[in-house]
Design a protein around this nucleic acid. Structure first.
Length: 466
RNA sequence: GCUCUCAUCGUCUAGCGGCCUAGGACGACAGGUUCUCAACCUGUAAAUCGCGGGUUCGAAUCCCGCUGAGAGCACCA
């Protein structure tokens, strides 16, 4: 039985796009093999805990269609799925490890550790715990009233081989590994202890995570061995990068899913695009659904190279989705989007009327407002100065006024006639009219827009310029 | 500093020893269409496959070295 997982930490605003990419692979791999995908919240760092982050992470996953079989929200047979609810489990195992002789209590103060590290740095040695407490063989009775941590006994000069499904065998030497803290002095487990215990207890078959974890995998293997547990399969995914090739970070790029959603990127596009980071469709397709992805996905097709996250192609793809979707679907997406992210209740009929004019122009849903704002409110300012155009607008006003059937065709006919009679430059003329009506140089097709606005409104707008 | 990983157009990638004078997508540029912007169509530029050695009849593809880039080395995950 294949079981995969992602283990996000509620330490940011929302789900990181890199986490979505990882979630996607885990989800696809599990679903492809009729397995389960679980979400576990790793909230053992109380200092970085962000209120509400867990909620948002779970919501976002659901929104993009990555539905967990087990999670803190839906529960499951191996819960609880929030690490802060599992503290006793980790403590029990930590103490057990000490009893077994695989770990030890350490009472070194932060100050002493800092000092040791400083000294090693000066001697140009790698900063490593000096194993001061390792030989002391402290018993629980010795430390229970003090501040203590539990450390793993890392064996000397032993080769650890990580069998990585993507990278092949990767060898490490235990001499390069520090005696890891497993249980912190606040009683919380470190990541290393918690993942190993949870992955084992939750029967995770494939640990698929970002490449940054590869160097800590030997520590985990040592822990599995200390417990006497079977190893899961490991696969380390390429890391998403900033344009400067460093690890994708919030300092240099928007990284939160919520940011992209607020911009009006569609959840399914986020997923489609992220799927293409480090992987490509066997038929070279760019646009495909999550279901199709699951069908054709294979772990062995994942690239080793870390890709740069490029929002330009993401925009193109979003436009592609918007253009090629059913109009009614886009309409409800727009309605929903503006309500959710801009607190705007757009009148459905107006969206329905205007959408045909702009559907093929929209990339992000936020673009709709850029193009269509003038349908909802009169322009407050104009991109081009129209002050010396009063005479022209007077003529336009009169022309428009006498149109009986105020439709796009009629408007065009009248305006062209005016252009001819006055011997005007067509392009310039329509630009002025466009700005007068919409306030902008760029807008949806003018005649159609005017038809939607209606004769009265168009006349009003021009009147203000006369 | 130490350990590990990676290396094809600007970007995402195809490529698993001959089909490659390296293909696709985004982007860029030019043209067509057009009252703007898009969309659409046509076309162009863009990788001496990081460099240097091997192996082989034959290498982007296999091996080694170098270089470059990245990640990790916490009582953070």
């Amino acid at each position: 039985m294949i079981r995969t997982r992602i283990a996000p930490s509620p330490t940011g605003q929302d789900l990181h796009v890199g986490s979505i990419a990882t979630a996607l692979v885990n989800f696809a791999w599990a679903k492809k093999h009729n397995g389960q995908f679980v979400v576990r919240i790793e909230d053992t760092d109380r200092t970085r805990y962000v209120e509400g982050a867990e909620e948002r992470i779970l919501n976002t996953l659901e929104l993009v269609g990555i539905i967990p079989d087990e999670s803190p929200r839906v529960g499951g047979p191996y819960g609880p799925y929030r690490q802060s609810d599992r503290i006793e489990i980790y403590q029990r195992y930590a103490h057990e490890l000490v009893k077994k002789g695989a770990a030890y209590y350490c009472t070194c103060s932060k100050e002493r550790l800092d000092e040791v590290r400083k000294k090693q740095m000066l001697e140009k040695k790698p900063p490593r715990y000096d194993r001061h407490c390792r030989s002391l063989d402290l018993k629980y009775e010795d430390v229970k009233d003090k501040s203590f941590v539990v450390r793993l006994k890392i064996p000397d000069n032993q080769e650890i081989v990580v069998h990585d499904l993507i990278r092949g065998d990767v060898k490490f030497n235990t001499n390069d590994i520090d005696d890891q803290v497993l249980l912190k002095s606040d009683g919380y487990p470190t990541y290393h202890l918690a993942v190993v215990i949870d992955d084992h207890l939750m029967k995770i078959s494939h640990v698929i995570r970002a490449e940054e974890w590869l160097p800590s995998t030997p520590k985990h293997i040592l822990l599995y061995q200390a417990f006497g547990w079977d190893l899961p399969q490991f696969a380390h995914l390429p890391l998403l990068r900033n344009p400067d090739r460093s690890k994708l970070s919030k300092r240099k790029n928007p990284v939160w899913a919520s940011w992209y959603l607020e911009q009006g990127f569609l959840p399914e596009v986020l997923v489609n695009y992220l799927a293409l980071m480090g992987w490509s469709h066997p038929e070279q397709k760019e646009i495909f659904s999550l279901d199709e992805y699951i069908k054709v996905f294979d772990l062995k097709d994942i690239q080793k190279t870390a890709p740069i996250f490029d929002p330009v192609k993401l925009e193109w793809m979003n436009g592609e989705y918007v253009r090629n979707s059913q109009r009614s679907k886009v309409k409800s997406q727009i309605l929903e989007y503006y309500k959710k992210y801009h607190n705007k209740d757009l009148p459905e009929e107006m969206v329905e009327k205007t959408l045909p004019l702009v559907q093929e122009r929209i990339k992000k849903l936020a673009d709709y407002w850029e193009y269509c704002q003038f349908f909802y409110e009169r322009p407050k300012s104009y991109e081009v100065d129209l002050k010396d155009k009063k005479e022209l607008f007077k003529k336009i006003y009169q022309r428009l006024k006498k149109i009986n059937e105020f439709n796009a065709f009629k408007i065009g006919e009248e305006m062209m006639q005016l252009v001819k009679e006055e011997n005007l430059k067509t392009g310039k003329f329509f630009m002025d009219l466009r700005v007068a009506i919409t306030g902008k140089k760029i807008s949806p097709p003018l005649n159609e827009s005017m038809e939607i606005l209606g004769k009265g409104e168009c006349l009003e707008r021009i009147k203000t310029l006369i």
